[in-house]
Design a protein around this nucleic acid. Structure first.
Lengths: 152, 152
DNA sequence: GATGAAATTGCACATTA
DNA sequence: TAATGTGCAATTTCATC
């Protein structure tokens, strides 16, 4: 799929606010409402837009802190950990990575006492290194520049 | 703000698909359309819902790999890095953390050659440890269980 | 672009804790 | 008696031609 300037503007805008009306967005970037609908439909169909999600405030849901935990395990432990991640509601995301660790996991923790339980649970089959998140100063959308070499 | 069972269902559903109609969602969880609108409005107003965003496929935008880079710097370097993160389109997010590192940064890289440039740029005022993301097997919504101790 | 279908919003009223 | 939910009408938004 070929992504032109207007598509990029659309992606940018929908990342910032996915519930704005397509008509209003079209007016802003100079496109009629049906043209907008068609572009968005194609972006969805091509898998460029994977979905739309609400951003929720973790604090409001009782999550007092977040932790980023690195896990080092054996090759055999990997499958075991994948199951564990699925079973633990505190695990928000897990990335399999190269380097000294096998996984980098982000966890939502209600309060300090829960952190101990989570760390213990994650240490069953490997070693863990825990970093508490103090703040998240940067959280960007994917921008035009980040997509320097679009697939043809 | 008090969040009851229906609110949790709403949050869950809107995290999964933020563009579904409130009418359909209301029917599913047993609420009339205006009642749904009202609940969503209140969740937004209370800051529980911070916004709505499109999830875009990084591969489709030419991002061939992602890296998670830990940065260790001096206290004086922190402000400098915050500016640098803002200026670098490859930086998707940065968390300030406790532990041996000061920041954990996620970067979108077009191709391997760009990784070198990004790592070099991030190493100007501290030491970096780079992990390439092989896969992201877990990516969950915030669930009811994760919010064990809701604020009153 | 224009048109019909669907969704959202606003308002008056009922219900319940 | 507040707070919350319902039903209906008016407006806006969306999909198809």
């Amino acid at each position: 799929m070929n992504i032109d300037r207007k598509d990029r503007q659309i992606l940018e805008a929908l990342q910032a606010d996915a519930r704005q009306s397509l008509a209003a967005l079209g007016k802003r970037i100079g496109l009629s409402q049906p043209a907008m609908s068609e572009r968005v439909r194609k972006l969805e169909e091509a898998g460029v837009i994977e979905g739309y999600g609400a951003r929720v405030n973790l604090r409001a849901l009782g999550v007092g802190l977040q932790a980023i935990i690195r896990i080092d395990t054996t090759h055999a432990g990997i499958a075991k950990y994948l199951k564990l991640f699925d079973a633990m509601p505190e695990v928000l995301s897990a990335d399999r990575v190269t380097g000294e660790s096998c996984f980098i996991v982000r966890c939502a923790i209600a309060e300090p006492a829960d952190l101990e339980r989570v760390v213990d649970a994650l240490a069953v089959d490997g070693s863990v290194t825990t970093s508490l998140v103090l703040s998240s100063p940067v959280n960007k959308h994917v921008t035009v520049q980040a997509a320097r070499t679009p697939k043809k």
